[in-house]
Amino acid sequence: MSKNYGTKRVVVGAHYGLRDWLAQRVTAGLMALFTVALLLQVIFGEHISYEKWAGIFSHQWMKVLTFVVILSLAYHAWVGMRDIWMDYIKPVGIRLSLQVFTIVWLVGCAGWAIQVLWRL
């Protein structure tokens, strides 16, 4: 009879829980800091207009920072949705289909957001 406890315990699973937990916190923190910085520029600046808004994003450093935040948002959403599909959808075919749809949707949304960003 084999033991399933102690130092000889057989550990199964994908082993990416800590990595994804940390990624969720890091991406959430990055998005929160970006939001605060953007709000400060809007609140303490002059009257908001298209020119002001476009001016905020006209600097190269702001475009790069926004690009990183868009990618962080997509990865944050992917980790969350993947975990939901893995936890609650048991048939493998349906779960795989939902995961593929989620990836396609997130890549499309990120691509669209980046296209809008670089158009400014």
Rank of each mutant, 00 (worst) to 15 (best):
M81Y: 10
H59I: 08
G80A: 10
T35Q: 03
I43L: 12
Y88G: 06
G13I: 06
I43G: 01
W21K: 06
G80Y: 12
I89L: 07
R25E: 14
S97W: 02
K63D: 03
Y75F: 14
V68Y: 14
H15S: 05
V26H: 15
W53E: 14
E46L: 13
S72C: 15
Q41W: 10
G29D: 01
I103M: 01
T66Q: 06
V10D: 01
L40T: 01
Q24Y: 15
G29V: 08
A14S: 10
E46Y: 10
S49W: 02
D83I: 05
I84G: 00
M81R: 12
V64E: 02
D83F: 09
V68R: 02
G17I: 01
L30Y: 15
A37R: 05
L65A: 12
I89G: 07
M62A: 14
F44H: 14
I84N: 00
D87C: 07
S58R: 07
I94W: 11
S49P: 02
V68T: 09
L18S: 06
G93S: 11
I56K: 10
L33W: 04
L30A: 15
K90Q: 11
Y50R: 14
V69S: 02
A32V: 09
H15E: 03
L98Q: 08
R25K: 15
S72Q: 03
